[in-house]
Structure formats: C-alpha cells, structure tokens
Design a binder for these strands. Structure first.
Lengths: 206, 206, 206, 206
DNA sequence: AATGAATGAGACTTCATTCAT
DNA sequence: GATGAATGAAGTCTCATTCAT
C-alpha cells in the first residue's frame, strides 16, 4: 500500500535529467519568462501537459536546474578551499574550477546569471541567497589573504576587485560554447594571466 | 495639416521622456518580459490603456529607450575616437566614457545587457546589431593598435582580451548605483588599473 | 470462450465492491467533480491508470454506485409497500427503511443528494428519473391515503407536505455518521414523532 | 496620482452586481466546480477573460456572492433576535425571515447548501464557519428557551430537533422558484404549521 | 490626455483516459 | 492486475492592446 503521490522525486532519474537538460537549454537560449512549456515539450518531443507527469511546474524545473548546478559547483569549490593552499594558488584553482563548471553547466550558469536577481525575492529560491553569501565569502577572503601575504595589490578597493574578478569569470558563460577551440583550462589560464598581470606590457626591468 | 493620428512623436516630449525613464526603470528592475504595461502605468500614476496615447506599444517603448541610450553612447565614443590619441589613451578614454554612460543610463544599460541577445533576432532591433559591430571594431582596433605599438601584451588571444575588457566594463551596470561612494571616473580609474596592470603585486626589479 | 476484453463485469466482484466503496467515500466527501481518479486510486493504494482495469470510466463508477444503492433501496421500499398496511404504518415503515438505507449507504445517499439534479440531464442516468417518479408516487399516495382515512391533516398543501417529509428524511445523510449514539431506528422514531406530532407542546384537553 | 490597482472594490458597483447575479445563477444551476468562467461570461455576453477586469478569480466571485448573502441574512436575523420575543414567536419570525431570504437570494442559498461543506476547509471561507456558529446558537437557544417555557416538547433530542428545523427550512431552496404560486410568507406559514403541530390529525379532545 | 471596459490570443496547469510492458 | 508514461482536451488566468467617452 505505498500511496506514492509524487513520482517527481523518486522514479526514473534518467528521464528527468534528460528533460531538465532540455529545459535548461531552452531557458538559457530564450530566457525563463519567454520560454513556454510548450517550447520545452517540443524540444523533448512530447506535449506540454506531459511534462507535468515529471514535474510540478515550470518553476520547479527551474529550481531543480539551479540546485543541481549549485550543488556541483560547491562540491568543486569546497574541494579547492579544503586544500588550504596559498591565496594565489587558491585563486587560480577557483578560477579554473569555475571555467570547468561553465563548461559542464553552461546553460545553468547562463540562467543563473540572467534570472537570479529576480528570483532571490521568492522564498522558494532562498537557496540562491545562501549560495551567494558563501560565494562572496570564499572569494573575498582569498583576496584578503592575498593582500595580507603581499601577493595581491593593497591599493585597490577590495569589493571592487571582488566584483571585477567574479564578473570577469562568470560572464564568460554568455558567450562560451563547449567544444570550442579553447578548453576550460586554457581559457582559465589566459583569464588568470590578464587578471593577475594586466594587459599592459610591463616595463622591462633594467 | 497638423491633425495627426499619432501624437507619439510630436507632442510634449518632456512627458514622453518621463514615461520612458519610468519604463526603463521597471524594465531594468523586473526584466522586459516580466514587466506588464500595467506596472509601468502604476509607476507613472495612470492606467495601462493611457500609455497608448503616448506610445504605439510596449515594444516601441523598449526600442526608444535603447535607441536613445545608444545615440548618446556613440556621441561620446565618436568624440573619443575622433581624437585619434594613442592606443592606451584611447582605451582609457573609452573605459571612462563607458562608466559615464552607465552612470547616466544605468537602466538602459542593464536592459541592453539582459535583453539584447534575444532582441537582435527581430528586424525592428537591427540597429543593435549595427551598434555591436561598430562597438567591436572600435575596441578591437584599439587593442590591436596597442599590440602593434608594444603597449599591450602580444601573447594574449585578442578576441578573448576584447571580451574580457568589454564584459569587465559593462557588467558593472548590474550592480552600479548612481550616487554611491565612487564617481564614474573613480571607478574607471580603478578598473583601468586592474585591467592594465593586474591585481598581482609586481616583483620589484632588483 | 472466456477471453473477454473487459473483465469489468465478471472478474473478482469483491475487489470491485471494495473499490466502489472507496470511490463512493471520496465522491461523498469531496464532490464528484472535485474528485480526481488519482484521489480514488490513492485511497485504494494504486495508481490512477490501474482503476481502468476494473472500470470503464469515472462516470461508470458513479453509475454503479448509484444503481447499487437504488436497487437496495427499492428492495426495501417494495417490501414495505407490498405489505399494504394502513397509511400511518406505511409512512412509519418507509421512514424507518430510509434511515436504514442511510445507515448502510451513507456515501451513496450523500452523492445522490448532491449530484442527482445535474445527472438526470444525461441519458446514462435516466434510471434516476425513473426512480424519482416511483419514489414520489409511493410517498404521495401514502400521504393521500392518510388524508382520505383522516389520519393525516387535510388542510396542508400535499406537494409541500411531500417535499417536507422527503427532505426531512434524506437531508439527514449530510450529517449522519454510522456508529454514532443513535441507531437508525432511534433516529427514525424521533423524526416520525416530530413530523407526525410537531415540536410544539399540545395543549392538554381540559 | 492615485495608484489604484484594483477597481474590484471601488468602481461601478452596478455592473459588478449584475455579473455576480449572473454568476450566482449559473453556480446554483450547474454547481461551482462544473461552472466554467466561460459559461458565466457567455451568460453575461462577454468573453471569459473580460470577467477578470471586474474580479480577481472565479473563487473571489463565489466569496462575494456568499458574503453578500450572509450579510443580508444576518441583518434580518439580528432584527428578529433583537426583538426578544417569546420563543415561539421568535421561531416563527426566524422561519419567515429565512423563507424571505430564500426568495431574495435563491441562487446564493442553493450554492451555500451545496458547496459550504467543501469550502469551510479553506481559510478564505472562514467566515462561513463563523456564520454557522452564530446560526446554530440563534436557533438552538430559541429552542431551549421554548422547552424551558414549556411551549416546545421536552422529550426530543435538542440537536436532532435543531437539525430537523434547520434542514427543513433551507433545503427548500433546492426546489423553490420565486414567483411561484406561494409567497414566502405563505410557505413559511405552512412549514411552521407542520413543524409545530405535525402532519397527523389530532385526536379531538372530548 | 486619460479612463473604463472589453477583446483575443496565449500562457500554465489539470485530469480522464490509453496503452505497452 | 498493476505501472509508468504519455495524450489531448479543457480550464483558469494574464496581458498587450483597442476604443468610445
């Protein structure tokens, strides 16, 4: 007598994942609001109503997409932070990890970038606020450690620098295409080179 | 002769401007799709239908907001480019001008950032494509002149650098609040310092 | 020979009965329209689609519930009427029998009360009209016999009296709970006492 | 700058009332759940979406119908109760007032009868519970006063009597048609005669 | 210039029902 | 006997837009 009401959480994770990937792609391409469930269903080869066998609502699809992404992101970040390397190495590892996540979850990252500002107002998406707090703390403390250790410049406004680095990395999701000519690691290397050393030619010592 | 059906272009340009500013604010805050004409009207203290005395459609409001912004942006950029300064000075002037535009047209910039990707597909917004092309040319050629003149590093992927600089600047519109503690010029100076020289401490030559 | 497509009528009548009882309970509680087959299936510990192995449709469940109830009701009424007792005894027997049916088929009675007005318009539920006709005839003729025999008052509008008695009895299904403190027979006795003698105290003849 | 958002409460009460009357008629005839907003709109000669200019939702229409009815009902009952007549006169006045309300708000009463059991579970319809409590108190205390004053029989279960009287009166809304051959007052008189004195012929004193 | 009322298209969602397994 | 997945019709509601006043 297993009065199961919602197959949403337990059953057939494979189909769910497929559908969520499809939905994420469409959300990223057209924007969440402009995406109709009919479009998602079309891409999945089914009728709009059929999606509701798998999900409670359009919004719950969005939520699951973002949660899944953030869970993976934090698994990666936590590994980096647990290593307790020096500030420069930590920064490099965070940037590299970020580009890897963009590579793996491009759609989710793009959605996050575009929609999170609106979503945080809703209780259901409170987990975004939580994540943002942890995110800021991880980056800001790394930068601060770097200033203290005299590997990062002390003459810059720390919050400005934080936003600079943060945006620089994540905005890449808007143009990045997986399978392009640069691997995530390669892009990370170039970004780091710019962020750390600047784009101006250094006056040669001597 | 003056019996026009559509007073949209002629009558009371001051009121139009007010309404467009209101609309831009709401578009920026809530997203174009999520903004109903009712919300705009609420903010303007009138009923939704009344807006149609002033504008043809919600879309035409969006178009006018973006056109006005781009017109001003290009007036500024063209002045900078016409000066034909050296590449580093040009870069600095472009960045500074950009932050000034963000200061003056924060809402329009935010809308542009968020919506342009979708809009360019529509013929009506073809002017965005045109602007993007000019934009890319202005920045890329400045960077290339800098590499040729050996003031910018030659070991970086030029397109990656372009995107880096472009995003670095414009993404600021998402968090910038006019009247904050930093003036646009001050923000520009710090950004330029990071972009040009990096955030890492330079090893002192001997 | 026994290769039937629709086992609906033959197979496992016990299970059918169980499921119909479950369905009747839910229909009575939530209303026919507001009851989804999913809810019925939940209560029965199965999935919605599985019900269609046992029944053709939600409507056919409703039909069978009502038919079963009316069949039993008429078996009881016919026994009473066949006894050809005096009008007062017949009235008492009909009321008592009615409360017994409410006791046994509370859910079906509640459904009947609430939905029959809508259902009679459908051909499939024509049997309800037929039953109502017989019902009215049985009660009305008993009342008329009582008036003729001078055991019921002659100064009342007969149809009004009919509705009064009818409603008085059947509306009880909306609040009656089997297993309560009063047996059906006890409730019948009190109702009859009120209906026959009124609730006012009689002035004692001298 | 009156940023009015909901014309629902203030403007044009006449049209609202018309539409609510139409809706009540359809709800009463077909049941709330089975009534589509399209049907209401059809009856009102407009499109389904247009109803939403006047009302927030189908449910809010139902709420307003029931509230309006109960407000009027209580205005009448309160007048009766304030008179502080003897129990028999009070009972007669309550019954008469009830039939007058049925005459004036037939549709609302029918809706109330059919739907209230489901509705009370929703917070929005909490006022129904409140009304039921007052209702029961008014009737029950009248009956109890009557028993104490020896004008009503003492040998009956008081709650059973309450339900009997209550249902007897209100169920009439299911068959009552205004403009029929009996006025509300005439129906009340006959009902009272049955309820108070019963339908059986009294044995003549002497 | 603005209001009040309505239109009509389209959105999200529900649900009875089907059917291969 | 039952499940899991899907269909397709219909329902409630939203919203840009129109227009007489």
């Amino acid at each position: 007598m297993p009065t199961k009401k919602k197959p949403q959480v337990t059953a057939a994770p494979a189909r769910r994942r497929e559908l969520l990937d499809t939905a994420a792609e469409v959300f990223a391409e057209q924007g969440y609001n402009a995406t109709t469930v009919r479009k998602i269903a079309d891409h999945a080869g089914m009728l709009a109503g059929s999606l509701y066998y798998h999900f409670d609502s359009k919004e719950s699809m969005l939520e699951e997409i973002l949660r899944t992404f953030l869970d993976e992101l934090w698994a990666g970040y936590d590994t980096v932070l647990a290593a307790e390397s020096g500030p420069r190495e930590t920064l490099e590892a965070l940037v590299t990890e970020s580009f890897r996540e963009i590579d793996r979850h491009r759609a989710a990252v793009a959605i996050y970038q575009k929609e999170s500002k609106q979503l945080v107002a809703q209780e259901r998406f409170g987990f975004l606020v939580e994540s943002q707090r942890r995110f800021e703390k991880a980056w800001l403390s790394t930068l601060e450690r770097g200033v203290a250790a005299q590997v990062f410049r002390a003459d810059l406004d720390m919050r400005l620098t934080y936003r600079f680095v943060r945006d620089t990395v994540w905005v890449a999701a808007s143009w990045y295409r997986p399978g392009g000519q640069h691997s995530p690691e390669e892009i990370a290397r170039q970004y780091l080179s710019m962020v750390l050393d600047g784009i101006a030619v250094r006056e040669q010592p001597q």
